[in-house]
C-alpha cells in the first residue's frame, strides 16, 4: 500500500531539551496508527508538526510524497484542508455556538450557501448525537460533548487524514465508546489517521498498528493483531505499566 504520511529523521528541541532525537515512521493510506508514549514524550508535537503548527529542527515530513516542511504558511493552508486535527480538549471557539463552530470551516473554505451549510451542519450534528445542542455555547457543554463537537468540526470538510490527540482522555466509558465508533466510521471511509492515546482498549479497537515513542525515538511498531496474540515485548510492558 502507498505511504500517506512519512516522518524521516525528524528532530525537535525546545531550548536545551531535545524532545525528538530521530523519529522515522510511516502510515499507509487508510491505516490508523496508534501512537503511544509517556506523558511529555512529544506525541502531540508529532501531530502538530504534521499540520505545520510546529516546525521541526531538521528532518522531513512527507504527506502523499510532498515534503511539507518546505512549504510556507500560505501553502500549508491547502494541506490543512486535507488534514484534520482533533484537539485534546476540543479547542472550540468559545465566542461561537456549536452551530457556528461547525459552520466555520464551511464558511471559510467552501462556496456553499447558508442553507446548504445549515443542512450539512445539522446532518453532522445528528451523526454525532448532538442534534439538539446546536445553539449552545462550548461553556455549556460537557467534556464529552465538547470533544464530539471538536471532532465533528475537524471532519466537516471531509479530510483525507485525521490526527486524533487523545480524544478519549477523561471521558466516561459511554462517551469513549461513542468516540471509538466515530473513529471507526472515519476509518471505514478510507481516512488515514494517527491516534495518540493512553487508552489501550480504544487503541486496540481502532488502530491497525501501534508505535511506541520513547526517549525521542520510535522504538517499536507492531500490528494490533500480533500484540493481541503476544503479551510480551516493549509495547505490552508499556501498556501494563512496567515501563514509562
Amino acid at each position: 500500500m502507498a505511504k500517506e504520511i512519512e516522518f524521516k529523521n525528524f528532530k525537535k528541541s525546545f531550548g536545551q531539551k531535545a524532545v525528538h532525537e530521530d523519529i522515522s515512521f510511516s502510515v499507509e493510506k487508510g491505516e490508523c496508527l496508534g501512537l503511544l508514549g509517556g506523558s511529555g514524550a512529544g506525541k502531540s508535537v508529532i501531530l502538530k508538526s504534521l499540520i505545520g503548527l510546529m516546525k521541526p529542527d531538521s528532518g522531513s515530513i512527507f504527506l502523499e510524497g510532498q515534503d511539507i516542511t518546505l512549504l510556507n504558511e500560505d501553502e500549508m493552508v491547502e494541506i490543512r484542508k486535507q488534514v484534520a486535527y482533533v484537539f485534546q480538549n476540543g479547542a472550540l471557539f468559545d465566542s461561537m455556538t456549536v452551530f457556528d463552530n461547525l459552520a466555520y470551516p464551511l464558511r471559510e473554505h467552501t462556496t456553499l450557501t447558508e442553507s446548504e451549510i445549515e443542512k450539512r451542519v445539522h446532518d453532522l450534528l445528528n451523526e454525532f448525537n448532538l442534534a439538539t445542542d446546536d445553539l449552545l455555547y462550548p461553556g455549556e457543554l460537557s467534556g464529552g460533548m465538547q470533544k464530539r463537537v471538536g471532532m465533528a468540526r475537524s471532519i466537516i470538510l471531509g479530510p483525507e487524514v485525521v490526527l486524533y490527540d487523545e480524544p478519549t482522555a477523561g471521558l466516561d466509558p459511554f462517551n469513549i465508546r461513542r468516540i471509538q465508533e466515530m473513529i471507526l466510521a472515519m476509518k471505514a471511509k478510507g481516512v488515514t489517521s494517527i491516534f495518540v492515546t493512553h487508552d489501550m482498549p480504544s487503541a486496540f479497537a481502532c488502530c491497525d498498528r501501534i508505535a511506541l515513542l520513547r526517549k525521542g525515538r520510535i522504538v517499536h511498531v507492531e500490528s494490533v493483531e500480533k500484540l493481541k496474540q503476544n503479551d510480551t515485548g516493549m509495547i505490552n510492558d508499556f501498556v501494563n505499566g512496567m515501563t514509562a
Binding site: 499540520i51 490543512r80 479547542a91 471557539f93 470551516p105
Partner: peptide, 14 residues
C-alpha cells in the same frame, strides 16, 4: 492557552 488560536490555524485560516 485553550488552543483556540491553534484551532484557527489548523482549520486552514489565519
Amino acid at each position: 492557552v485553550t488552543e483556540q488560536v491553534n484551532a484557527i490555524q489548523a482549520l486552514g485560516t489565519s
